[in-house]
Amino acid sequence: MTKITMVEAVNKALDDAMAADEDVVVLGEDVGTNGGVFRATIGLKEKYGFKRVMDTPLAEALIAGVSIGMASQGLKPVAEIQFMGFIFPSMEQLCCHAARMRNRTRGRLTCPMVLRAPYGGGIHAPEHHSESTEALFAHIPGLRVVIPSSPVRAYSLLLAAIADPDPVIFLEPKRIYRLQKQEMPAAGTTLPLDTCFTLREGQDVTLVSWGASIKESLEAAKALGEDGISVEVIDVATIKPLDMDTIMASVRKTGRCVIVHEAARSFGVGAEIAAQVSAEAIFELQAPVKRVAGYDITMPYYRMEDHYLPDTERIVRAIKETVMFQ
């Protein structure tokens, strides 16, 4: 079978969705003629025409607003924000309108739109190109937030997001766009949204992560396995709504929990998971919940970027401290 990278998986998902449903349209800055900054939309304009693959002005508020209008009238827009650091102008439209459409109209209208954005650090980019602010959108009722961690999940979760009747913020970890290749799943294969995926079974500690940090999490789990520490690795995948049932079942089995993410430590998704685990499994926990995260600073430029991002060594150290807690 053909093996594809994550960015190729995104392109294939868009292609398959557009082929299956003429209501699916793609829009954003440079998504048409240039095929996007990372070439995630390459070839789509040539195949489906400028009426379904639209280059927009450099105006993120416009991109989100037009997408909401399209979605409310029966289309299924998939909009791209070039980098997550440029997403802030679109937030008024997303938070005040897209997220509220179903509630505002008492279900008469929905907003079946997807807003894609490359996110996260690790590519030595300039300012505003490496943000990890998924918690901002996870806090808004009515928005679904999805973050794939592999080519297969990128393809299958994006198809599921496009089919969803409500707005989805689909964040693509650009650090792993071309890091690995996986066999292409059967065309049209979807994975369930709002579900965590257990990537590795373990008995001693639950390691919870998402996005690009899954790579280092699996590396840490493998290294610790050689030392006799059995690590269960969970890929959150859908940040909101959060599948706490899967996480809690694992924590109750292992008695320990370490959470890894590259977003700033304070007030993040990791803090929410830690709070729920501590509240609901307090009598099963054998150690405090530990977080390995980015620091509460602006993502630094490339010379310091590697010091900011959680690496395998930091994760291994946190897990050992958790396992050895008395």
Rank of each mutant, 00 (worst) to 15 (best):
E183H: 07
D194G: 04
S209I: 02
E8G: 05
Y155A: 05
G35I: 02
A187F: 00
H307Y: 11
L44Y: 05
S250R: 04
H139L: 08
P241N: 08
L285Q: 05
A19E: 15
L207P: 09
C196H: 11
W210S: 13
K290S: 06
A160H: 07
I169F: 14
N103H: 15
M84A: 03
R39M: 12
G35F: 07
A163F: 00
L75A: 03
D166T: 11
Y119E: 13
L309A: 06
D21T: 10
I247M: 02
L14H: 11
T206K: 05
L193K: 13
R102L: 06
N103A: 09
E284K: 07
P167V: 03
G294F: 07
S217A: 10
R175N: 03
K51N: 08
V24W: 14
E216K: 14
L75E: 01
A64D: 12
H261C: 07
Y177I: 07
T2V: 01
F325N: 06
P165S: 06
G65H: 10
I176M: 14
D166P: 00
E272F: 02
R104P: 05
D204A: 10
A237Q: 11
V25P: 03
V316H: 02
R314N: 09
G202H: 07
M1D: 11
S278R: 04
S250G: 02
E60G: 04
P112E: 02
V7C: 06
T189C: 11
H97M: 09
M70E: 12
L159A: 10
V152Y: 10
K12W: 12
C96V: 06
T254V: 04
L143T: 03
F283D: 13
V258S: 03
I68S: 02
I147H: 06
Y177M: 04
K240F: 06
A154I: 01
R153H: 12
V316L: 14
T33H: 14
L218V: 07
R108D: 07
H124A: 14
S213Q: 15
S132E: 09
T206N: 03
S90P: 05
V260M: 12
A161K: 13
R102V: 00
I239G: 06
T206F: 02
D15R: 15
R104G: 02
F50P: 07
L199A: 12
T206Q: 01
G268T: 12
T5E: 07
V292R: 15
Q182Y: 08
Y295F: 14
V37H: 07
L157F: 09
G211R: 12
V251F: 01
A263M: 13
S217R: 06
P185F: 10
T133M: 14
E201V: 02
V78G: 13
M6K: 08
E284W: 10
I282W: 14
A249L: 03
M1K: 14
F50A: 15
A237T: 09
K215I: 08
V37D: 03
W210H: 15
S130Q: 12
E80W: 04
P173M: 13
R317M: 08
F170V: 03
T190G: 06
E280T: 00
Y48E: 04
C196P: 09
T238H: 10
V168G: 08
Q93S: 15
F283A: 11
L285S: 05
E29T: 04
E134S: 14
I234V: 12
D164T: 03
A263I: 05
L143Q: 03
A220G: 02
F197G: 01
E60D: 02
V277F: 00
V66K: 04
P112T: 08
K320W: 01
D204I: 13
G255T: 06
